[in-house]
């Protein structure tokens, strides 16, 4: 038996929005530790790693580890039927072929349930090595989304350069060039507005805009985003999910031909 209840059901809706354009289908791995997902996009350029710890759920029971393969377009249709203020409960039997979603309104006067057929996915998991990154930048997630959107107008890829002074996003295209520089903030009233840079070595790497823009669909999950960069390895773009989880996007860099 698997059962997970999240009072703040809107978090699950936001997680769905954060992955549904990048992935067509994905396996949700459930264990007593919580819910995890790892999947590559169709082109195998990026990888999504989602972790929601059991401690973040109001109720969490997982008697046996199980993997639930879901079509994300179908899952999205179901989660769109939940209101932002609804509590969401997922339920499945051991070795399930369906999963049930129950949505309860705040006053408990409206209860709806939907069941969805699961699919068999033969997804391979990749081992992600522990990496000490040369630069780790934390910045407001809305600012990152805006920069990616703005610069995408001018070219297909963005170069991210990081020094101890700050982070620079650059684009070059047919009509010209664009640069956005963010300095490390000295004093800010709100932690959510801070830009912080932890640098061991300066880094400059180039990434496809298309994927960066997909990742920014996670912006509603967290006011801050963390970018981790090292030469010749994938960029990590991380958004926290409340206090109990995260979604990490890994993006393979463009390499010189």
């Amino acid at each position: 038996m698997f059962e997970a209840r999240l009072t703040q059901g809107s978090l699950l809706k936001k997680v769905m929005e954060a992955i549904r354009e990048l992935l067509n289908e994905a396996s949700f791995d459930c264990s007593e530790n919580g819910i995890q997902l790892q999947a590559m996009d169709n082109s195998h350029v990026s990888l999504v790693s989602l972790n929601m710890g059991s401690e973040g759920f109001d109720k969490f029971r997982c008697d046996r580890n199980l993997t639930m393969g879901m079509n994300l377009a179908s899952l999205s249709k179901i989660l769109k039927c939940a209101s932002n203020s609804d509590a969401i409960t997922l339920k499945a039997q051991d070795d399930p072929d369906t999963v049930t979603f129950t949505f309860e309104s705040e006053n408990n006067e409206r209860v709806s349930d939907y069941s969805m057929k699961l699919i068999n996915l033969d997804q391979e998991h990749l081992g992600i090595p522990d990496t000490e990154y040369s630069c780790v930048v934390k910045m407001p997630s809305a600012d990152f989304a805006r920069i990616c959107k703005d610069l995408s107008q001018f070219g297909d890829c963005i170069t991210i350069s990081c020094t101890k002074e700050g982070i620079k996003f650059s684009v070059a295209g047919d009509i010209g060039t664009g640069n956005v520089k963010l300095a490390q903030t000295a004093n800010v009233d709100k932690e959510s507005e801070a830009v912080t840079v932890e640098m061991q070595e300066p880094v400059s790497l180039t990434f496809a805009c298309r994927y960066l823009n997909h990742f920014t669909k996670a912006t509603p999950l967290s006011e801050q985003v963390q970018l981790s960069l090292s030469a010749d390895v994938p960029l990590v773009v991380e958004y926290k999910i409340g206090e109990f989880g995260h979604i990490r996007y890994y993006l393979a860099p463009k390499i010189d031909e």
Binding site: M40, K254, D256
Partner: peptide, 14 residues
Amino acid sequence: SGKQSSIMNFFSKA
């Protein structure tokens, strides 16, 4: 603007 590499070049199968 460089060649897009695959994520599978960096992470091995678990």
